[in-house]
Computed example of a mutant assay.
Amino acid sequence: MNRYSTYPDTKLLLLLKDNDSQAFAEIYARYCQDIFNYAIVLVKIPEMAKDLVQDVFIKIWEARGKIEIEKSFRNYLFRVCHNRAYDIQKEIAQNRHLREQLINYYEPVIEPEALSQEGDTPYGRLMQQALNSLTPQRRRIYEMCKHDNKSYEEVARELNISPNTVKNHMSNTLSFLRDYLKEHKKLTPILIWLLQKIF
């Protein structure tokens, strides 16, 4: 058994101040999972939570000679994590790619089929806006298939086009609607959350 694992935090910190790397390794092993669990709550994105954990322990190593703990070392680590997470949240707010990762974390992709019957609700109105953005022919094909429950063959006969053309229109329309709903439904609540965190 590694004797360091039996030491209380107070002794590990004293050893850490003397540049004992094994004491640091024990502190990391003892608390890295707790800090990760806290980090994922704060920043949501797993990759960023892992980076946050590394940042916390790098800071602990770099400040090892100056650390003064009055009560709980675990709570001290959480405070360091929280402070660093605040900087990361500002970074997310300013980085489109990171915002998109955060948006994807919060809500799954919305399927247009799930919203097509929503009517006068925020989701239903959003679906209507998306449909209004379609070309007249694509919207007609979509409504014939989804609202009138017609097969591709039936739509093709009525519009005098091939079933394969109907299929391609539907595939492109559903892809467009998913992207539209994903972008417009998710942005507002997430940006509000980010602004609250920053200001």
Rank of each mutant, 00 (worst) to 15 (best):
residue 154 E to C: 09
residue 155 V to E: 10
residue 169 H to V: 14
residue 59 K to F: 02
residue 47 E to T: 02
residue 9 D to V: 09
residue 40 I to A: 05
residue 96 R to E: 12
residue 119 G to H: 05
residue 197 K to G: 02
residue 175 S to W: 07
residue 8 P to W: 13
residue 10 T to V: 10
residue 53 V to T: 06
residue 78 F to R: 10
residue 55 D to L: 03
residue 18 D to V: 06
residue 103 I to G: 00
residue 180 Y to L: 03
residue 133 S to F: 07
residue 25 A to S: 15
residue 2 N to A: 00
residue 68 E to A: 12
residue 129 Q to Y: 08
residue 44 K to E: 13
residue 68 E to S: 12
residue 128 Q to I: 05
residue 153 E to F: 01
residue 185 K to G: 07
residue 130 A to Y: 06
residue 72 S to A: 09
residue 69 I to G: 01
residue 130 A to K: 06
residue 82 H to G: 08
residue 45 I to E: 11
residue 31 Y to E: 04
residue 121 T to P: 07
residue 27 I to D: 03
residue 45 I to A: 08
residue 78 F to V: 03
residue 75 N to H: 11
residue 128 Q to A: 11
residue 156 A to K: 06
residue 4 Y to T: 04
residue 83 N to Y: 07
residue 12 L to T: 02
residue 117 Q to S: 13
residue 80 V to W: 03
residue 188 T to N: 07
residue 58 I to P: 01
residue 94 Q to H: 13
residue 103 I to F: 05
residue 114 A to Y: 03
residue 7 Y to E: 10
residue 90 K to C: 10
residue 23 A to M: 01
residue 110 I to S: 04
residue 40 I to W: 04
residue 32 C to D: 12
residue 97 H to R: 11
residue 67 I to P: 05
residue 131 L to F: 00
residue 157 R to V: 11
residue 51 D to V: 10
residue 119 G to L: 04
residue 33 Q to D: 06
